[in-house]
Design a binder for these strands. Structure first.
Length: 217
DNA sequence: TAGGCCATCTGGTCCT
DNA sequence: AGGACCAGATGGCCTA
């Protein structure tokens, strides 16, 4: 009942070798680049320490010399490294925002956390892949998929549901709560052309679950 | 108030 | 040598 992905999506670990801008589609790549050029000053990721020094971490304990106290070449190198690291994290957050933006629309005020975004994206990609595979099996690939494949959003409509039918009890008045606390997200994918469409509804989770927990109709 | 999430600082490691 | 990446630690903010 629970189809397993043919690929191995479990390894979400990114590495400097695997994740590069060139690995993104042009549109997303541009988005990421723009975010980088903008120093990651998105509304959600305003650098908190651009003007004030916060955090400091264990280093402030283990290494009494703070940012302000460090002097000389060592201090300058450290400050440059901090700036680079800050920008790197801003770029990473911008990329995550770009990823959120291409995922199926969420209810208002239901912004996914970082880990939820990654997990949900993985499952969403898997669901799209399965949909294509099933459409191909039914011989419906030629007509509508070929022309729209570059734009999944135009091929599929996605409807959010607070919970799967089997777990309808999870629904609460608080959408955000129902999505994140319960750790359940479901997405119904339908092809646009109902006549030739393969009706597929996926329900999957954004929590720490294996794709084996994903099921479809 | 506890717990989750996040931004930041920092030193270590690897790569160019 | 310098930059990129990573993980650990810490404090701030928010919510239940």
């Amino acid at each position: 009942m629970s189809p397993k992905a043919t690929c191995a999506p479990d390894d979400l670990r990114s590495s400097r070798d695997a994740v590069t801008l060139s690995s993104f589609p042009p549109t997303l790549r541009n988005t990421v680049k723009e975010a980088g050029d903008a120093s990651g000053h998105s509304s959600d990721n305003l650098p908190r320490s651009s003007l004030t020094v916060t955090g400091g971490g264990p280093a402030s304990v283990k290494h009494p010399k703070s940012r302000c106290e460090q002097s000389g070449q060592r201090g300058r190198r450290r400050m440059k490294a901090n700036d680079r690291e800050r920008l790197r994290m801003h770029n990473l957050n911008s990329a995550l925002d770009a990823l959120r933006s291409i995922l199926p629309a969420l209810p208002e005020d239901a912004k996914l956390t970082k880990i939820e975004t990654l997990r949900f994206a993985r499952n969403y990609i898997w669901a799209l892949t399965e949909t294509l595979r099933m459409a191909d099996q039914h011989g419906h690939t030629q007509g509508y998929l070929a022309s729209d494949l570059s734009s999944p959003a135009s091929v599929f409509s996605a409807e959010w549901d607070s919970a799967s039918p089997a777990e309808a009890g999870y629904g609460t008045s608080d959408q955000r709560n129902s999505y994140t606390s319960v750790n359940e997200m479901s997405c119904k994918l339908c092809t646009r052309d109902e006549s030739s469409a393969v009706p597929v509804t996926f329900y999957f989770k954004c929590g720490e679950s294996d794709l084996r927990d994903t099921w479809h109709y």
